[in-house]
Lab assay of single mutants.
Amino acid sequence: MAEQVALSRTQVCGILREELFQGDAFHQSDTHIFIIMGASGDLAKKKIYPTIWWLFRDGLLPENTFIVGYARSRLTVADIRKQSEPFFKATPEEKLKLEDFFARNSYVAGQYDDAASYQRLNSHMNALHLGSQANRLFYLALPPTVYEAVTKNIHESCMSQIGWNRIIVEKPFGRDLQSSDRLSNHISSLFREDQIYRIDHYLGKEMVQNLMVLRFANRIFGPIWNRDNIACVILTFKEPFGTEGRGGYFDEFGIIRDVMQNHLLQMLCLVAMEKPASTNSDDVRDEKVKVLKCISEVQANNVVLGQYVGNPDGEGEATKGYLDDPTVPRGSTTATFAAVVLYVENERWDGVPFILRCGKALNERKAEVRLQFHDVAGDIFHQQCKRNELVIRVQPNEAVYTKMMTKKPGMFFNPEESELDLTYGNRYKNVKLPDAYERLILDVFCGSQMHFVRSDELREAWRIFTPLLHQIELEKPKPIPYIYGSRGPTEADELMKRVGFQYEGTYKWVNP
């Protein structure tokens, strides 16, 4: 592979701008107003304001973009700056750019259920340069409990009458099928589907988006991507930290609602779906819905739930269990780990287990898709061969690698495990991989909904998990304890083995 010439960040961002501006969906010269509902909250200060700053800094926003914060707290732009700027990672050389960014910011205080507050917000936006005809993007960085009041008031008082209007809704989209349907029906009564952007930030990850290209742009994968060759698929999300004093919020939802029903299920769809007619948003989402419709409700015998306990040999936070978090209700049975087996009941995947695993306070930070292939028929190497695996590593250190057998150097035919490896950090030294939120917010500006969740996708996802969630809430089974920093409950490994996964433990990928 030829040595790549190092590029400056300015040059890299210039390439990104060229890609972005050559499309006809990006209205570079139009006025846009980006409204952050819930501007005083954690999500706004840690993710949304920093993301908008990065896009502005790199010249990736339309030229005439204004940012308006809205929340109940009586704040000023200076207050917003004070709480969000520490997350910007701005350099001293960017000081003038930073001043320009905050000059485009404003803030309006108001209630979430008060019509007069929204009329005041609308008047404020109209007073901005060309504000009355601007395109408006409303980001709901809010708890779902206020979605209905907020969307109703936005629709009645704050819509642009000339430009387009788009609304970005953060997960969780309800707690179960019934609450999700209620919320979807409410929002759909106010906005068209092409105006609604239900954001799952995992769909903005580079390697998640790469799944489609790997599958449908490489001839070698087509013939082997089926039940005849693939023994099982494992989708993993692991965090090495616990709730760390923020367990009160987590306890309301648990690990299945927080990660599995959305992030992991979306990745499953991209692995299992048929080739779409095109890369058009609805063509892709149509195929994802077909996959979900082929999955039956989760069966309790295919589920393992766990909850982390303190590690007596650990240090600091590792010595504390979930129930030691003062914000967690006493005696909570909320799971911090889950392993679930699903089956896609169609011709391509009949009988292939899709194993979804996620948890907190585990032994490493990792998100990946792992396809394990069947054993080689007619073994001539005296059971020395391990199964081939194709691994798409989402985070950290984005990579695609194939675990395969090669001859060990020497005189004899002794096979050993090795890999074919594409590590993004080595291959793409001159490429700026956008943060997931950067990519998705740019998608909203461009009107691309491919990486957002459609209402029928959402409904099918909740259909699969709601009976299990209701059973857990009714019966309150005690989750299996696992030690902070471990791989999780051993019962999860036993479940995976029972459905056909072979864990060798003899080879570990190392970032080159």
Rank of each mutant, 00 (worst) to 15 (best):
E3S: 05
V5P: 09
A6T: 12
L7E: 08
S8M: 05
S8G: 14
S8H: 07
T10V: 07
Q11N: 10
Q11E: 13
Q11H: 07
V12W: 11
C13L: 06
C13H: 08
C13R: 09
C13M: 04
C13A: 06
I15C: 06
L16K: 05
L16R: 07
L16M: 07
L16W: 07
R17W: 03
R17P: 09
E18L: 08
E18V: 03
E18C: 10
E19F: 04
E19C: 13
E19R: 06
L20G: 03
L20Q: 09
L20K: 08
F21C: 10
F21V: 06
F21L: 11
Q22R: 08
Q22D: 05
Q22T: 08
G23Y: 14
D24S: 06
D24R: 06
H27W: 07
Q28E: 06
Q28D: 08
D30V: 04
D30Q: 09
T31R: 06
T31E: 07
H32I: 14
I33E: 03
I33S: 02
F34Y: 08
F34N: 01
I35H: 01
I35C: 11
I35F: 01
I36Q: 00
I36H: 00
I36E: 00
M37V: 12
G38A: 02
G38Q: 00
G38N: 11
A39H: 00
A39N: 02
G41S: 14
G41N: 12
G41E: 13
G41D: 14
D42L: 14
D42G: 12
L43P: 03
L43V: 03
A44T: 02
K45P: 02
K45F: 11
K47Q: 13
K47A: 10
K47I: 11
I48E: 00
I48F: 02
I48Q: 01
Y49A: 01
Y49P: 00
Y49R: 00
P50D: 00
T51W: 14
T51R: 07
T51V: 06
I52C: 06
W54M: 11
L55F: 04
F56Q: 02
R57D: 01
R57C: 03
R57G: 02
R57T: 02
D58T: 09
G59K: 04
L60T: 03
L61G: 00
L61N: 00
P62V: 02
N64A: 05
T65Y: 06
I67T: 02
I67A: 01
I67W: 01
V68P: 01
G69F: 01
Y70K: 00
A71W: 01
A71D: 15
A71C: 03
R72A: 06
R74M: 06
R74Q: 11
L75C: 04
L75G: 04
L75K: 10
T76A: 05
T76N: 08
T76S: 07
A78L: 08
A78Q: 09
D79I: 04
I80P: 00
R81I: 05
R81A: 05
E85H: 03
E85T: 04
P86M: 07
P86H: 08
F87A: 04
F88S: 02
K89G: 07
A90L: 10
A90F: 04
A90M: 05
T91N: 08
P92G: 11
P92R: 06
E93Q: 12
E94M: 03
E94I: 02
K95W: 09
K95C: 13
L96N: 09
K97S: 04
L98G: 00
L98M: 08
L98C: 04
E99S: 11
E99N: 12
D100Q: 15
D100P: 02
D100F: 14
F101M: 01
F101R: 00
F102H: 03
A103M: 13
R104E: 01
R104M: 06
N105W: 07
V108S: 02
A109V: 08
A109H: 04
G110I: 00
G110E: 01
D113H: 10
D113Q: 06
D114H: 13
D114A: 05
A115I: 07
A115K: 12
A116W: 06
A116T: 07
A116V: 06
S117N: 11
S117M: 10
Y118R: 00
Q119V: 09
L121P: 00
L121R: 00
L121N: 00
L121S: 00
N122H: 10
N122G: 07
S123G: 13
S123Y: 09
M125D: 00
A127R: 06
L130S: 11
G131V: 04
S132Y: 10
Q133K: 12
Q133W: 04
A134K: 04
A134S: 15
R136Y: 10
R136D: 00
R136N: 04
L137F: 09
L137P: 00
F138Q: 00
Y139E: 02
Y139T: 03
P143D: 13
P143Q: 11
P144H: 14
P144Y: 10
T145V: 14
T145W: 11
E148C: 08
E148W: 14
E148H: 10
A149S: 13
A149G: 14
T151E: 07
N153Q: 12
N153V: 02
I154L: 13
I154V: 13
H155A: 10
H155N: 10
E156V: 10
E156F: 05
C158N: 04
M159D: 04
M159E: 09
M159P: 05
Q161E: 08
Q161N: 05
Q161W: 09
G163L: 00
W164P: 03
W164H: 06
W164V: 07
W164S: 06
R166K: 04
R166N: 02
R166H: 08
I168P: 02
I168S: 02
V169L: 11
E170H: 12
K171D: 06
P172E: 03
F173E: 03
F173D: 02
D176K: 05
L177P: 12
Q178C: 10
S179F: 06
R182I: 14
R182A: 08
L183S: 12
L183P: 03
L183V: 10
S184W: 05
N185T: 09
H186S: 05
S188V: 12
L190V: 14
L190S: 10
E193S: 03
D194C: 05
Q195F: 01
Q195M: 07
I196T: 05
Y197F: 07
R198P: 01
I199M: 07
I199H: 08
Y202L: 14
E206T: 14
E206P: 05
E206D: 14
M207L: 13
V208F: 13
Q209E: 15
Q209M: 12
N210C: 06
N210Y: 05
M212N: 02
M212E: 04
V213K: 06
V213A: 10
L214K: 02
R215C: 00
R215I: 00
R215L: 01
A217L: 00
N218F: 00
N218Y: 00
N218P: 01
N218I: 00
F221V: 15
G222N: 11
P223H: 13
P223I: 00
P223R: 14
P223N: 15
I224N: 13
I224E: 03
W225L: 02
N226F: 02
N226Y: 04
D228T: 11
D228I: 09
C232I: 02
V233Q: 02
V233C: 11
V233G: 02
I234N: 13
L235R: 01
T236C: 04
T236D: 15
F237H: 08
F237E: 07
K238V: 14
E239I: 08
E239R: 03
F241Q: 13
G242F: 08
T243F: 12
T243E: 09
T243W: 10
G245A: 12
G245T: 07
R246H: 13
R246G: 04
G247E: 08
G247V: 09
G247D: 13
G248A: 14
Y249N: 15
F250W: 11
D251H: 11
D251A: 05
F253S: 09
G254M: 01
I256E: 00
I256H: 00
R257A: 10
